[in-house]
Structure formats: structure tokens, C-alpha cells
Nucleic acid binder design. Structure first.
Lengths: 330, 330
DNA sequence: TCCGGCGTGACAACCGTTTGCCATGTGTTG
DNA sequence: CAACACATGGCAAACGGTTGTCACGCCGGA
């Protein structure tokens, strides 16, 4: 079934069929009706590649993540999926395996088959990012680069809350567990942590960096213990959960001996042992907003009046992995 | 940059360029070299939609899941993603929101832009599934229907192991926590459970059905408690984890008062409180295998010699949510 | 010497839509 | 009533590749 068949069946030209089906208002109501009826009758389904070839629009948006395995992305996948489906777009998933080259390479190759892309947490240098944005509409998440629309989750503000929380519990030695150095978020979090601690006239220290992945929790836990701190803020929940496991192994009580707070509030943070105090990030919402921004930017006639950077707030969710500092340690 | 540009640059016909780039052996080594050099030089990137239109092959495979949110699918997403990327295919994600109609509708509409699809856990009746398989190459996971290639995870065999484990711990009242009734897996698991219990001359009972999602754990836990059983096998880990949470709330000790075993060994099962005894399913592998089957079937000249149904084994991972039955309860 | 076959490249016809432009018919305006 | 604007539908040219078929030249075999 092609529009030619429908054209034949209704006695009009293919161009009319095309317009009746995709550009309402361009043909009279009567013929439109007739054509749509015929289309339904013949179970006509448009051919996306043909449409894409002729119009340049593919109806597909890619979500680019550095590692599908990371639970952090689960929320993004979900959020983007929802919003894209609602808008009638298809959802392509691209895993860059943590490699910037892969990232740029894949997007470059696929740019013609995409209407745009959401970058889940780009590892790309700013220059490349801007260059890429010239090839294909982009929205970044948790990565703020001038000239590229972005949505960033304001974890730094949350970090301040977390520090507040820990300080109020009597902690004076608080350490930051650092994630991968190329990670923009990691930098942002560490900066926020330093600032917050300075405000309390406390020394900022950190351990790491550690590669992303739960496995890093082991080394991280040991490093934190070694630092003599009574509390720590981990780069993300995956680290924190990994640490929890290690700490149990070593017989360290959480939070009695050590308080730990995570970041992101991923799946699992609420039922870990003990349940994790963490910065709840609206990841899913971030995905939805990113898609909305991207899509609104795609809307041809839009003179780009949309906001180019939105920041989403986080809040501290206190569970059971944080508690009063051991008084004997002060 | 189109092949026409390359043709012009090298002084050959576009057909030659096309063949030089995609069908090795059809043109002489010398010209091929020249053409490839030019292509590299001009930074030529093929236009997927055009290719798809002309050839019918899209280089895209969809993974269809009933709910992206479900952690069970995370493994599938990962497995399929890996294998597809390795084969140079793009990975489309489709969420059917648990609706069979959605499922059939979406696949029907997108069939022309897909080379095939992996059905993560189809809700479709056998008839529809077979019909759909006629429209587009399909491989199902955890769903066995004659005529449609499939990979199924042999949880039933694992269930037997789980029952063995519980019985050996002295449990006599073991209940199955039932998932959604339309779920093929749920049926299979319940059947296996009944068979295993009968083998031990024990009565098979179940509670539920409950809708999928962690929230069901609450009702499930209460129901199990109410049943007077000393142990239970849950339809999946999500249920089990939800139950664990509820049981803590109610002050029920796991495993002292109640042993619980889950299914699938999803992310989180190892660090829940207590860590969950569960049937470890090779989900990721299932995804990989499904993709391999699909892709090998796509290989034109293949007279379909490939296996049409592979079953993957599971094994019981004993952690801390199962323990001896309370002797006073015997 | 002639012929058949093979390796190589060109020609051109698609694949199924979209869309710019033109022709026609109708309604509106002065 | 004339002139004009506008609404509607048709024509045909893209979009960027793939692929069946044919022509050519060269080779070896008879």
C-alpha cells in the first residue's frame, strides 16, 4: 500500500493524498474525508524512510548515554521515552561506552537519520559539543556549555543541603568521594562541596577519583575509612551503595561509625541496607524537559525564543545512612 | 556529500561508488581504493533513509518492552544494545505500556522502518504474535509460541531448585506470589511451583494475582503473612523487594519469620535488606542471544537453519532472605 | 583467427514521499 | 460585469541511494 494506491482508489493525484494525510487544511474537507477513508480501508501505513528522504524529518530522536548499565540513566530513558512517545517520535538508544570519540563518531554518522539528540551526560569537550550542535539539534543534560541548550539538575545546591545536614549532626570531618574526572557533574559537585564546607570553616577533602560503577565502592569505602572522616558525600548513589556493601563487610556501622550520603536517588537507594540518605534528583523530569526543549526547537518557525538552559532543583532525602557523629571522635 | 559528489570527484558512475562502498568484490581493487579515499576525503556519510528506501533494509532493530521502568528490562536493554551495536545496527526502544493493542499497533506502524524486533515479554495472544511475525522478523523472549523464534529463560527449572532449597530448610508451607495473569512467565512459574511442591507431597497455594510493580509488594506481603506460610516464592524480584520493605514495616523478621525468594536477580537484589535469595536469570545473555537469532535470520540467503527456540538455564543464588523454618511452626 | 566467457563499469529505473509551481474553478470586490 | 484573489487539485521534480541489465574490452581455448 502506497499513496499511489490510495490515489488510484480515490481518483486523485498522489500529491493530494500526501497533503490530505499530512497537511490538514490544504485540501477540502470533502476530499480529505474520502482519502482518509480509503487509507483506513486499505490499511495504509506511511513509509517512514521514504518520508524522511523526501522531507528530511525522520521522526526519531536519540538518547545518548555513556553506559546503559548505569541506573542513573534508567530514569532518563524513562523520561525521554514517555515524552517522545507522547509527541509521536521514535526513541533511539545510543551507548557510547564512555568514549568521547564514539560519541562524536556515532552522532556524526547517524545525524541524517535523527531529528535531534539528547546527550545524557556528554564526555565531549565544549568545542566538539558546539560543533556537533551545528550538525544536529542537541540538548544536553547535566552539562552546561554556552550555545547548547541544556537542562541541568542542580545537585550543587543539594550538596549544600547535605553538608548542612551532616554538620548539624555534629560532623566536622566530611569527605567527598570523587567520580570520574572528566565528568562535568563530578566537578560541579566537588566545587559545591568545597564551597559549602568553607562556609562552615571546615576543611574540604576528597578521595578518589574512582571510575564509575558500583565496584568502585570498595576502594572508596576503604579510602574514606582511611581518611578518618566521620561522614562522606559520594559522587553518586552507585558509589554509595557499593560503599555500603563494603562497609558491612568490614563491620563498620552505618551511620554510627560513618554517615554516607549519595547523589541522585536511583532505583535501589530506598531499599539498600541501610536505606540511603541521598540527593533526590528529578532525573525523569530532566529527560522529559530535555525532550520538550529539543522538540520545541525543532518546530521550524520557532525563532528560538525558548529557554536555552533550565535548571531543576534537587532536595535532600534523609533516610538511615546518616546519623549523629560519634562524640568521641570530635 | 552524496555518492554523486564522490562519483564526480573520481570520474566514475554513482552505481560504481555505491558498489565500491557497500559491496566489496563487485568493483576492482584499484577503483575501490580510489573511491574510498575520495569518500574519506570528502567526509562522506551515507544517508540511512535513502538507503532504506532503496534497499528495504533499515539497519534498525526495535526492543519492545511493556514498561521501561521495570528493572528486569534493564538487563535486556543492555544485552540487546551490546549485540546490536556490535553488528552495526541501531537500537530502537519501544514501550507498550503494558497494552497488547499498543504493542501490535506500534509494530505494525513501524514495521517498514525496522529490520526486526525483539519482544521483551509480549502480552499478545499467540494468534496475533504469529500474524505479526508474518509482517516483520520477530524474536520473543520469555514467550514461547510455535512458529516464532524465541529465547526463554528456564525459570521453571530454577523454581524447582528454589523449592528444593526451601524444603531442605524445613519449610512445609510455601506459597507462590502471583504476578499479572496475562504474563506467560507468571503462568510458567506457577506451574513449575505446583509440580515441584507435588513432588514433595506438599500443597501448592498461591496469593494474588498482583499487578506488576514494586508497590504490589505491600499487598503481597500481607497476603502471604495471612496465608500462614513460612516461605514464599515471588513472581519476580520487584515483588520480593517490595515485600521485604513491607515486612520490615510490620516487624516481621526475614528469614526468621518468613523466607522469601525472588526471581530474576535484578539490579538491587544483592544489596536489599536482607540481600535477596533469588533465581539468577541470564537476562543480558537472553538479550544478546535474541539479537543473534534475529540477525542471523535476517541474513537473506539463510534457509532458516537456525534454532527456533533456545532455552537458557537459571540457577539459585542463595543470599540472606531464606533460612530455616521456625521449628515451632511445623 | 574467431568465439565464448568473464571482469568491470555505466545507464537508468526504481524505492515512496514531499513540495514548489501551475491551472482551473469559484467566490469576492469595485 | 470585469478583474482579481483565493481555494483546490494536478504535475513533476526532487530526496539519495540500490540494483538489474547491458556494453565493452580483454583473456584463453579451439
Amino acid at each position: 500500500m502506497t499513496i499511489a494506491d490510495i490515489a488510484a482508489a480515490t481518483g486523485v493525484a498522489t500529491s493530494t493524498v500526501s497533503r490530505a494525510l499530512s497537511r490538514p487544511g490544504r485540501v477540502s474537507a470533502a476530499t480529505r474525508e474520502r482519502i482518509q477513508a480509503a487509507a483506513r480501508e486499505l490499511d495504509y501505513v506511511p513509509h517512514p524512510p521514504a518520508r524522511a528522504l523526501a522531507s528530511g524529518r525522520t521522526g526519531t530522536v536519540a538518547l545518548v548515554v555513556s553506559d546503559v548499565t548505569n541506573p542513573f540513566y534508567f530514569g532518563m530513558i524513562r523520561g525521554t521515552q514517555q515524552q517522545l512517545k507522547a509527541a509521536g517520535y521514535a526513541h533511539l538508544l545510543i551507548d557510547t561506552e564512555d568514549s568521547g570519540e564514539h560519541e562524536i563518531e556515532m552522532l556524526h554518522t547517524m545525524r541524517r537519520s535523527l531529528d535531534g539528540a539528547i546527550l545524557g551526560a556528554s564526555r565531549l569537550p565544549a568545542r566538539s559539543l558546539v560543533a556537533l550542535a551545528g550538525e544536529i539539534p542537541l540538548v544536553t543534560v547535566n552539562r552546561n556549555v554556552r550555545g547548547v541548550p541544556s537542562v541541568v539538575i542542580d545537585t550543587p545546591a543539594g550538596i549544600a543541603q547535605a553538608v548542612e545536614h551532616l554538620v548539624s549532626l555534629g560532623h566536622r570531618d566530611i569527605v567527598y568521594v570523587s567520580g570520574p574526572q572528566q565528568s562535568w557533574s563530578n566537578q560541579a559537585r566537588w566545587q559545591a562541596m568545597k564551597a559549602a564546607l568553607e562556609r562552615h570553616k571546615l576543611r574540604a577533602q576528597r578521595v578518589g577519583p574512582f571510575p564509575s560503577g558500583r565496584g568502585s565502592g570498595t576502594a572508596a569505602a576503604d579510602a574514606v575509612l582511611n581518611s578518618g572522616a566521620t561522614a562522606c558525600v559520594a559522587f553518586n548513589d552507585l558509589f554509595a551503595i557499593g560503599m555500603l556493601t563494603r562497609l558491612r563487610e568490614r563491620g563498620v556501622q552505618v551511620p554510627a561509625d560513618l554517615s554516607v550520603v549519595g547523589c541522585d536517588d536511583i532505583f535501589g537507594a530506598d531499599f539498600s541496607n541501610p536505606p540511603l540518605t541521598t540527593l533526590t534528583a528529578p532525573i525523569e523530569q530532566a529527560g522529559r524537559v530535555a525532550v520538550s526543549m529539543l522538540l520545541s526547537g525543532l518546530d521550524h518557525r520557532a525563532p528560538e525564543p525558548q529557554r536555552r538552559a533550565v535548571v531543576l532543583p534537587t532536595y535532600l532525602t534523609v533516610r538511615e545512612s546518616t546519623g549523629p557523629a560519634d562524640p568521641s571522635r570530635r
